[in-house]
């Protein structure tokens, strides 16, 4: 009888613990950057932009929601309210890659236009440029 009760209590505690952690998981806050995530693709920024230029549909299927690590030359840095947008673009290409950083994950003084950097972020699609959000500076 005593043992049964013990099992029962243990069971209830276990269920409660699972419930607690799954609720916690479900309501976890969105992370500000992909710093800790592994890149699904690694490529030159101009190559990524080129693929979207040629066939946006195909590139969407391939890259949307994926973590992509790109290397490219800084064309422009813009400081917005809560984000910093860094555009990676070759002087000769039509479109580039806009990398959006949360202000907590980048200091603007770290970067200068013309510099070559490596960034990873989640691909959200293509407008005039390919957009990567939640970016993290790799080097």
């Amino acid at each position: 009888m005593n043992k049964k009760l013990q099992f029962l209590v243990l069971g209830v505690v276990l269920i409660l613990a699972i419930l607690f952690f799954s609720v916690k998981w479900a309501f976890r806050p969105a992370s500000k950057s992909v710093e800790k995530e592994k890149a699904d693709f690694t490529m030159e920024a101009s190559a990524l932009a080129g693929e979207f230029e040629i066939d946006e549909q195909k590139a969407n299927v391939m890259y949307l929601d994926k973590v992509i690590q790109v290397k490219g030359i800084i064309d422009n840095i813009s400081d917005e309210k809560t984000v910093i947008s860094v555009t990676l673009k070759d002087p000769e290409s039509l479109s580039g890659v806009i990398c959006s950083f949360d202000k907590s994950s980048l200091t603007i003084t770290q970067l200068t236009p013309g510099e070559k950097i490596t960034v990873k972020g989640i691909c959200t699609g293509y407008l005039l440029d390919v957009v990567l959000s939640k970016c993290a500076l790799v080097e």
């Binding site: 976890r28 969105a30 949307l64 929601d65 959200t124 699609g125 407008l127 959000s133």
Partner: peptide, 12 residues
Amino acid sequence: LLIKSFEFQKKL
């Protein structure tokens, strides 16, 4: 705009 570029406080 890109729909996927909307950022929420909660991931889910």
